[in-house]
Computed example of a mutant assay.
Amino acid sequence: MKKFIKYSLLLLVILVIALLVWGTFVAPYQIDYKEEQAEIPHLPLAWKDREIALIADFQVGMWLSNTETVKDIAERLAQRQPSAVLIAGDFIYHPIGDEPREEIREELEKDDVREVIQELRHALSLLAPLTEAGIPVYAVLGNHDYAMEKPDDTRLEWLAQQVETTLEEVGIKVLVNESLPLPAPGNTDGDPLYLVGIGSHYANNDAPQQALSQLPDDAARLVFMHNPDSFSHFPEGSAPLAMAGHTHGGQIRLPWTSDWSWMAMLAKNDVHTDGWVENYGKPGNRLYVNRGIGFSVIPVRLNAAPEVTLFTLQ
Score class of each variant (00 low, 15 high):
Lys48Tyr: 08
Gly61Lys: 14
Gly61Cys: 03
Pro28Ala: 09
Ala133Gly: 09
Gly61Gln: 05
Asp90Ile: 04
Val137Tyr: 08
Leu108Val: 02
Ile92Val: 15
Ser125Asn: 14
Ala128Val: 13
Glu106Val: 06
Ala74Lys: 03
Gln81Pro: 15
Phe91Cys: 03
Phe25Ala: 13
Ser125Lys: 02
Phe91Gly: 02
Gly97Ser: 09
Asp111Cys: 06
Leu124Phe: 04
Glu102Ala: 11
Trp63His: 08
Ala53Asn: 04
Ala53Asp: 10
Ile73Glu: 02
Gly134Leu: 08
Val26Ala: 05
Gln37Met: 12
Leu20Tyr: 09
Trp22Glu: 03
Arg101Val: 14
Gln37Leu: 12
Ala84Ile: 15
Asp112Phe: 13
Gly89Pro: 02
Glu68Pro: 02
Ala139Gly: 04
Arg101Ser: 07
Ala18Gly: 10
Tyr138Gln: 07
Ala84Trp: 11
Tyr138Ala: 14
Ile52Tyr: 08
Trp47Ile: 15
Gln81Leu: 08
Gly89Glu: 05
Leu120Pro: 03
Thr69Lys: 11
Ser65Asp: 13
Ile52Pro: 01
Gly61Thr: 07
Val16Thr: 15
Ala38Ser: 11
Lys110Gly: 12
Arg76Cys: 09
Ala46Gly: 09
Leu108Pro: 05
Ile135Asp: 12
Glu39Gln: 12
Ser65Val: 01
Tyr138Arg: 04
Ala56Asn: 10
Ile52Arg: 11
Leu20Trp: 13
Val85Asp: 07
Glu75Asp: 14
Lys110Asp: 13
Leu124Lys: 08
Val60Gln: 03
Pro95Cys: 11
Thr67Asp: 05
Arg121Met: 09
Val85Gly: 01
Ile135Arg: 11
Gly134His: 08
Leu127Val: 06
Glu51Pro: 00
Glu106Cys: 01
Gly23Lys: 07
Ala38Gly: 08
Ala18Asp: 00
Tyr138Lys: 03
Ile96Met: 14
Leu77Met: 02
Glu115Lys: 05
Ala78His: 06
Leu19Arg: 00
Leu54Cys: 10
Lys34Cys: 06
Leu19Trp: 01
Ile31Thr: 02
Pro95Ile: 14
Val21Met: 08
Leu54Val: 01
Asp57Ala: 07
Ala128Arg: 12
Trp22Thr: 00
Val137Lys: 07
Thr131Arg: 14
Asn66Arg: 15
Gly97Gln: 07
Glu99Ser: 07
Gly89Asn: 03
Glu39Leu: 12
Asp90Trp: 00
Val137Glu: 03
Glu119Ala: 14
Ile40Asn: 06
Arg121His: 14
Ile73Gly: 06
Glu68Met: 04
Arg101Cys: 01
Ile52Asp: 01
Thr131Trp: 10
Arg114Ile: 08
His94Met: 12
Ala84Met: 12
Arg101Lys: 15
Leu130Trp: 03
Ile96Leu: 13
Arg114Lys: 10
Pro44Tyr: 07
Ala123Asn: 03
Leu127Thr: 12
Ile92Glu: 01
Leu19Lys: 00
Lys110Asn: 14
Asp111Ser: 13
Thr131Tyr: 06
Asn66Ile: 06
Leu64Asp: 13
His94Pro: 00
Pro136Arg: 00
Glu39Asn: 11
